[in-house]
Measured scan of single mutants.
Amino acid sequence: NSLAEAKVLANRELDKYGVSDYYKNLINNAKTVEGVKALIDEILA
């Protein structure tokens, strides 16, 4: 998966839960796919 794909999928996942734009910005600023995954795990914990 590319970083861009990971960000799109992460933001879709956040949308399902009604997560605020603050967290979407964190996702969009992530530098690695692993970073995106770690943020998602933390946000949805």
Rank of each mutant, 00 (worst) to 15 (best):
V8H: 15
Y23T: 04
K24G: 03
Y17W: 14
E5V: 12
Y17C: 04
K37D: 03
G35F: 11
D21I: 04
D41Q: 14
K31V: 13
G35M: 14
N28K: 09
A4D: 13
E34V: 05
E42P: 02
L3G: 00
T32D: 06
V36K: 00
Y23Q: 04
A30K: 03
L3E: 01
A38F: 11
G18Q: 06
S20W: 06
A10H: 01
A10I: 03
I27L: 06
L3N: 01
R12L: 15
A4Q: 12
L26N: 02
L39N: 01
E42T: 08
L9M: 13
Y17S: 05
L3V: 05
V36P: 00
A45R: 15
D21Y: 04
N28P: 01
G35E: 15
L26E: 05
N25P: 03
A45T: 11
A10D: 02
D21V: 04
I43S: 02
A30P: 01
V8P: 00
L39K: 02
A6V: 10
V36D: 00
A38P: 00
N1Y: 09
E42Q: 14
D15E: 13
A4I: 10
N29S: 12
L39C: 03
I40N: 01
D15T: 08
L9W: 08
R12F: 13
A45K: 15
K7N: 01
L14N: 02
L14C: 07
Y23P: 01
L14R: 01
D21Q: 08
I43F: 13
I43T: 02
K16D: 05
D21S: 07
Y22C: 13
L26K: 07
L14K: 01
I40Y: 13
S20D: 11
K16G: 07
G18K: 08
N25Y: 09
A30G: 02
E34P: 04
K24T: 07
L14F: 03
A10T: 00
Y17E: 03
I27Y: 00
S2E: 14
T32E: 02
K24P: 02
L44G: 03
N1G: 12
T32W: 01
L9F: 04
V36E: 00
I40A: 08
R12M: 15
Y23I: 04
L39V: 08
E5R: 10
E13T: 12
A45D: 07
K16C: 05
E34L: 07
E5N: 10
K31M: 10
L3K: 00
Y17N: 07
G18T: 06
A30D: 01
L26W: 05
A6K: 06
V8A: 15
E34W: 04
N1F: 10
K37T: 09
E5Y: 06
I27G: 00
D41R: 13
N11K: 10
K24F: 06
N25A: 13
L39R: 02
L39S: 01
K7S: 01
S2L: 13
R12C: 04
N11W: 13
S20H: 07
N28R: 06
D41K: 14
V33P: 04
R12N: 14
Y17D: 02
N28D: 11
N11Y: 13
N11A: 08
I43Y: 10
K31N: 12
N28G: 04
L3W: 00
K31F: 10
Y23E: 04
I43P: 00
N1K: 10
K16V: 05
A38I: 11
A38V: 09
D15W: 03
V33K: 04
Y22S: 05
K31T: 14
Y17H: 13
G35Q: 15
N1E: 12
Y23V: 07
N29Q: 13
K7E: 02
E42D: 08
G18M: 07
I43N: 00
K24H: 09
N28H: 08
E5I: 11
V33M: 08
E34H: 09
N29A: 13
S20V: 04
K31W: 06
D15R: 04
K31H: 09
L3M: 02
A6N: 04
N25M: 12
L26S: 03
V8N: 15
L44K: 10
G35W: 07
L26C: 08
N11R: 09
R12W: 13
I27K: 00
A30Y: 01
I43G: 03
S20P: 11
A30V: 05
E5T: 09
D21P: 08
L44H: 07
A10W: 02
N11E: 13
K31I: 11
N1P: 13
Y22M: 08
I43V: 08
L44T: 05
S20F: 05
E34C: 08
G35S: 12
Y22D: 07
K37Q: 12
D21C: 08
K24W: 05
E42R: 14
V33L: 11
K37N: 10
V8I: 15
S2M: 11
N28W: 10
E34M: 07
G35V: 14
A4H: 11
E34A: 12
N25H: 14
S2I: 09
A4G: 05
D41M: 14
N28Q: 11
A6F: 07
Y17L: 13
D41F: 10
V33W: 04
A10R: 00
K24I: 07
T32P: 00
V33I: 15
V33D: 02
A4W: 10
E34N: 06
N25G: 11
E5S: 09
E13S: 05
A10N: 02
A45E: 07
E13L: 15
A45I: 10
I27F: 01
L26P: 01
T32H: 03
A30H: 02
N29M: 13
Y22A: 09
Y17R: 11
A38R: 12
E5P: 02
I27S: 00
G18E: 08
E13F: 15
K7H: 02
K7P: 02
D41I: 14
V19T: 08
A45W: 10
L39Q: 02
K31L: 13
D21H: 05
E13M: 15
S20N: 10
L44R: 14
G18S: 05
E42H: 14
A10G: 07
V33A: 04
S2F: 09
N1D: 13
Y17M: 14
K31A: 12
L9I: 15
R12T: 12
A4E: 13
G35I: 14
K37R: 11
N1A: 14
G18V: 06
D41V: 14
D15M: 08
E34R: 07
L3Y: 00
S2N: 12
L3F: 02
L9D: 13
